[in-house]
């Protein structure tokens, strides 16, 4: 078994959160520049230039790319022979209370604050504080809606993979675009074109509200929740990388063309660039089902990874 220190994991997560806030990833910046070069609508090209300029200012002046520094969505792949070395007691005391209850006794807090998830949340909270990021999480969704004050808990998707590494990918996901994401259960006999039409319609509906040009994540297959998860996981991929399956690589290309044919453009004010990329991920599914989910991501597509 390989042990990785709790503090090391927290520290890496902290640095990923901070760099996500300030530095637009290279693949996204390259896609924006390519779109700006090809854009035939002068107003749209001007907006794309402003987005490129925004990325420069953010990095140089240490001002976040967007005031919505996002909910930390964390995909963590834990090698089967990797374990977390629990933290020292002092570290535990510094960690945020992500469970929203201040009256738990200390013993139970310690018991619950030594896991991989705790290390991730500690890193997210530290990144938020030290990086001057926005605290955008409320503890209760409907009743009190009180801010947790730490931008935690993070949304954590965990999987066990072969090997002795720990891979952590963080997407700082804004609320405005997430609000426009959709799910639909198709009939298993549905045609490819029917699915394309619906996905394009989801993008049309997102429109100016969700900060186009988008990155469109699509999950096909699995079940109700897996399709949604795949649509988010698709956003972890480098924008220049196509699906390895030729059928789905072609579907991605056709979807991107159809989405850009909408003419919605940057900020919804018209133009050739409605999406920078469309990324499809798939999974096996039930004979009766064809679940499809679309995760809308804004142009400020902040995804960062590290391998420990």
């Amino acid at each position: 078994m390989r042990y990785i220190k709790f503090e090391k994991i927290a520290q890496i997560v902290e640095s990923l959160c901070v760099s996500a806030g300030y530095e637009l990833p290279d693949d996204v910046l390259a896609a924006l520049k390519e779109a700006q070069r090809k854009e035939t609508n002068p107003g749209a090209a001007k907006i794309l230039n402003q987005l490129i300029e925004n990325a420069r200012i953010a990095k140089e002046d240490k001002i976040p790319l967007c005031q919505d520094t996002g909910l930390a969505v964390v995909f963590v792949e834990q090698g089967s022979v990797v374990a977390v070395k629990p933290p020292e007691l002092d570290t535990i005391c510094l960690m945020p209370d992500t469970r929203g209850s201040g009256d738990e006794n200390r013993a139970s807090r310690i018991e619950h604050r030594e896991t991989l998830f705790d290390a991730i949340n500690a890193g997210v909270a530290a990144g938020c504080e030290k990086g001057f990021l926005r605290k955008s999480v409320v503890a209760d969704p409907l009743n009190k809606r009180e801010n947790t004050g730490s931008n935690t808990p993070a949304i954590i998707h965990h999987s066990i993979v072969p090997g002795d590494k720990l891979k952590i990918t963080i997407i700082a996901k804004g609320g405005g675009c997430e609000n426009k994401s959709q799910f639909r259960m198709f009939k298993p006999t549905a045609e490819r074109e029917e699915i394309i039409d619906w996905i394009v319609d989801v993008v049309r509906t997102a429109g100016a509200d969700a900060c186009p040009p988008f990155v469109v994540g699509v999950g096909i297959g699995g079940d109700f929740e897996i399709s949604c998860l795949l649509s988010k996981k698709a956003l972890c991929r480098n924008l220049a990388a196509r699906n390895e399956d030729g059928f789905y690589a072609e579907l991605e290309a056709d979807l991107l063309s159809a989405i850009n044919a909408l003419g919605l453009g940057p900020q919804g004010l018209g133009g050739d660039t409605t999406a920078l990329a469309c990324l499809v991920e798939t999974a096996p599914c039930h004979i009766a089902s064809l679940p499809v989910a679309v995760n809308i991501e804004c142009h400020s597509h902040r995804h960062k990874s590290a391998v420990l």
């Binding site: 402003q50 987005l51 300029e53 925004n54 200012i57 976040p64 005031q67 100016a208 900020q267």
Partner: peptide, 10 residues
């Protein structure tokens, strides 16, 4: 009025 979404630094 609309202004540029996602350009909070600018």
């Amino acid at each position: 009025f609309s202004t540029i979404g996602g350009a909070g630094a600018l």
